[in-house]
Design a protein around this nucleic acid. Structure first.
Lengths: 112, 112
DNA sequence: TAGTCTTACCTATGAACCATAGGTATACCC
DNA sequence: GGGTATACCTATGGTTCATAGGTAAGACTA
C-alpha cells in the first residue's frame, strides 16, 4: 500500500495537531490516524513524535486532557483545544500561509 | 519599512539557495538579497545562517565556488550549481510541493 | 490456549536545522 | 575621519523531528 510517505515539514506538527482537534476532542492515536487519512498517507505522524508533542502542548496550556474511553470501551487520553489553543491555531495557520507562500514565490520563479 | 519578516520554514533553506543559483552564479550576499526581494522581505536569510549553509552545500558537491569580484570590483565568493545540485533542486522542489500540499490539505479542512 | 495483531500509551537519544550574537575587512560617502 | 553598506566568517544554543526502543490490554485465529 501507500509507501508514499514524506517527512514532516519542521514546524508544522503543532498546527496539524491543533487542527485535528478543532472540530472535536480526540485521543492521540486518533489524531495521527486523522492526519494520515486527510493526507492520503503522505503524512504519517510516528508515535514517538506525537506523544511528546501532545505533552508539550498540554503543558503550554494549548490543550486540555482527560482519560476516557474510545467507542469500543478502551481507555484513551482525549485532548481538546483550550481557548488559547484555538487562538494559537489561527496564528499558526496564518504564519504557515505567509511562510509557504513566500517559499512558493521563490521556487515558482521561472528559470532561464 | 518591511518589518514583515517570517521565520524560515525549517528545511526550506536548501531549495531556496539552490533556486537562487538556478539561473546564474551568485555570491552569498546577492543570494540573500535575491530571496529577500523575491519574497518582498517576508524571508530574510541572516548571514549567520546563510554562510554555513553554503559551505555545507559546497562540501556536499551541490555547489561549486570560486572567488571573483562583483560589479563594483569588490571581492566576493561566487557559487554555481553543479549537475548534482541541479538534480537536487528538482528533488527538493518536488518534496516541498508534496509536503506543503499535504499540510494544506489538513489546514484547509472545513471545521465545525 | 497460545500466539499474533491492533490499539493505545510512553520514554530516551540523536541529528539536523535555524536563530542569535558575535567578529573581520574593504569601499564609499559626507 | 566616521559612519554606512557590502561581503565574508565562526560559535553556541534551542527547537524539532526521526528513530528505536518499551508496556499493556483487547481481539482474532490457529
Amino acid at each position: 500500500m501507500g509507501i508514499s510517505r514524506t517527512p514532516l515539514i519542521r514546524g508544522t506538527l503543532t498546527p496539524l495537531i491543533l487542527k485535528a482537534l478543532s472540530r472535536e476532542p480526540r485521543h492521540g492515536y486518533a489524531i495521527a490516524a486523522w492526519i494520515q487519512e486527510r493526507t492520503e498517507s503522505v503524512l504519517q505522524v510516528e508515535e514517538g513524535v506525537l506523544y511528546p508533542a501532545l505533552h508539550k502542548l498540554e503543558e503550554a496550556g494549548l490543550l486540555g486532557a482527560h482519560w476516557g474511553q474510545n467507542e469500543t470501551g478502551r481507555r484513551a487520553k482525549f485532548y481538546a483545544l483550550t481557548d488559547q489553543g484555538r487562538a494559537r491555531l489561527r496564528e499558526e495557520v496564518a504564519q504557515w500561509k505567509r511562510g509557504s507562500a513566500a517559499v512558493d514565490a521563490v521556487l515558482d520563479t521561472a528559470e532561464g
